[in-house]
Nucleic acid binder design. Sequence first.
DNA 1: GTGATGACGTCTT
DNA 2: CAAGACGCCATCA
Length: 116
Amino acid sequence: MSSGFFARVYELVAIIPPGRVMTYGQISAALQSPYSAKLVGFAMSAAPAGQALPCHRVINRLGEMSPAFAFGGENTQQSLLEAEGTPFLPNGRINLELARFEPSQEQLEQIEAAFT
DNA sequence: GTGATGACGTCTT
DNA sequence: CAAGACGCCATCA
């Protein structure tokens, strides 16, 4: 709904399986807009409540999340990721090497087809 | 209706 | 190798 980009981001985030995470850059790149990483982050900030949108699975390129209070707690996001089994590094950041989720072409097609 | 800002990332200098 | 500026779409003022 909306214009599209936001909706696509929501759909893409919604298909992220537990124990996996996606970076803003990856999502933006998946939407064929590698320069709109901000939009992905903004889409999360504008994420509609009530929707099954695991925004806590979306992190920055460093494997960190900026504003922890965005989820209602300081380490709420990190706790959720740990509870899902997301691989963390001893530095307290997410191991993107293991947690990085890459959507299949079918997944992307499914999303695009939903907004054609 | 116009201007400015935003959970970031990539390119250029 | 490092720092700075630019870019995208949508929402708020």
